[in-house]
Design a protein around this nucleic acid. Structure first.
Lengths: 333, 333
DNA sequence: TTGTAGGCGTTATCAT
DNA sequence: ATGATAACGCCTACAA
């Protein structure tokens, strides 16, 4: 690969001048500019961004840490961040944490050591303290789907409580009173918030929360089928089922059909997240939209504003989920 | 961030020695080693991988270019590559090409300029010539889901012809003789190969290929619904529908149900790719598994073997799709 | 407007 | 086994 020096030699100028036309921040004579550009194309020159980064202490790339590279949720998030950043000429370096503390820390250190200009993290395993501490360092840090005390300015998160409320409220408005709930793992903040929203909706409608209509699932399809089985075995009557995410709702749908329920007449089911497969279920799943893609865009805007000095960007730190009405919830007759 | 020089000073040694303990490839006295390590932890030292890369001309990271960051297909691919590489202590730098020639080229140049040790590309828009030329450069290049004449050693691809054959054959074995086919965009090599497989299966069973049972879709759900509508409007009888991918199959399922078909009795439908949502459709979609995740692993193994000198890795360049039997294809009675 | 030269944080080649 | 000291490719005062 040709270097800046070779270009300079061929163009008959100094390497500083070449550098100037590369970064075109300082005025260069049109004629010499042309000479340099000709030399660059003739040599197929391409600046070594590693060297640029070392010398300038800027890399024009922001690091992203997600739990997994596959999965609809992370895909939407990464795509949102990347689209926004790419439009600003910034690049993205992605690595994974696999929801394990060690790997998350290692991933963060990798991104830091790569001289990113900022990092955007979706971390689940590291502690709030660790994050607070991390934010004291030189590297600008932004957090997705997590709100940490004292770091609100760096966080982008979803109002899960509202989402939980909306889901149950939607079902209640169709006349349902006996409503089963399959929660997510309660060690996750998201799950807890969604449950809190559910309970608030019940309370607001004078419906008591009952243990026999509560089941803690695992956010996977099996959680949905196991939960529904649990309720059926309990012989407790219910006409609607609220699931804390779409996967569990799908598992419940499959199990319900196996048990001979006709859907949605015999049982209304609502999910949460609006993952892409919810369009494909039968009946099409009514659910709560989780605007991860938008949140990704917003996280990117946050770094554009704070790190790259794009002043006129308005930032939303908290996102509101919305109800997506499809076919899986029907009126309770 | 502390530098190697500061560590050296604190430990009372030269920076060269510190470098040696970092890379522990050269013998260092236990005692001095300890001094250095103490100094490193005391300063919270972390090598600047940018500087390492510049000096050593190795980055321990491989670049990946995919068309999109979201989507099941690319998610599986990226996850496969990353898992394999991570296990070997290598990192991954991901960027996107959005199926557009300019963006693909720009992404490739970004990865090259980042001093990756190798790059793995899933490109759709750049020409074979461009790739052949690219491979002549210093950067080791590997290609996913694409086979380019003369570059076979650098390609990992799926036997789409076989997949197309398997799909139609599966349907034929259930007694179907009137089989409609919704193809993918015929400018894509994958689509063409799948269609070729379909025709081979027909021929092998003495079933003529008929224009009235052929429709070219767009690989999206709309392609499935439009295709099915086309066939129905044509009033041509058929008992089975083969779709060149799962999205179109899902679109067809939805449209069929709207038209009052009872599935799968009135119409057998088969997809291609085995995307994750196929478990959620009703009936559950019979399809052809496309082992992208495995192929990702294999691409990573290829770079481990060729670039990082892991000699004992056996490489498979061509992958075979397999039939996934679920509920959407039934016997023709 | 352009050139000179020092520095970014490491690695790697010589010596010692 | 350890220490000096050139690279690595580029940026950026400072000078001219």
């Amino acid at each position: 690969m040709a270097t800046i020096t070779e270009v300079a030699k061929l163009a008959g100028v100094s390497s500083a001048t070449v550098s100037r036309v590369i970064n075109n921040n300082v005025k260069v004579n049109d004629s010499t500019q042309k000479k340099v550009k000709d030399a660059m194309t003739k040599l197929g020159y391409r600046p070594n961004s590693i060297a640029q980064s070392l010398a300038s202490n800027r890399s024009n790339s922001v690091g992203i840490l997600v739990s997994e590279l596959n999965g609809y949720y992370f895909g939407q998030m990464m795509a949102g961040i990347e689209a926004e950043l790419r439009a600003a000429g910034k690049h993205v370096i992605i690595t994974t944490g696999h929801s394990e503390e060690d790997k998350e820390k290692e991933g963060i250190e990798f991104l830091i050591s790569r001289n990113c200009d900022a990092i955007i993290l979706h971390v689940e395993a590291v502690s709030d303290d660790y994050l607070v501490n991390l934010c004291k360092g030189d590297m600008p840090v932004y957090l997705m789907s997590r709100s940490v005390e004292g770091l609100n300015e760096n966080c982008i998160s979803l109002n899960n409580k509202l989402g939980g409320y909306l889901a149950t409220q939607a079902v209640i408005e169709q006349g349902h009173k006996n409503i089963a709930y399959i929660a997510g793992p309660q060690f996750k903040a998201d799950s807890k918030d969604r449950l809190a929203g559910h309970i608030r909706a019940l309370t607001a409608n004078n419906i008591p929360f009952e243990d026999t209509l509560y089941f803690e699932g695992d956010f996977n399809e099996t959680g949905g089928s196991e939960g529904l089985k649990y309720f059926i075995d309990n012989k407790r009557m219910f006409s609607a089922l609220v699931c804390a995410n779409d996967e569990m709702a799908s598992g419940a749908i499959t199990y319900a059909r196996e048990k001979g329920f006709s859907l949605p007449e015999a049982l209304s089911i609502i999910g949460f997240d609006n993952m892409n497969f919810t369009r494909h279920t039968y009946p099409k799943l009514t659910t709560i939209d989780n605007p991860v893609n938008l949140m990704g865009h917003m996280a990117a805007k946050l770094v554009l504003k704070n790190v790259y000095q794009y002043k006129n960007l308005s930032i939303t730190h908290f996102f509101e989920p919305t109800l997506i009405t499809r076919d899986s919830v029907t009126i309770n007759s």
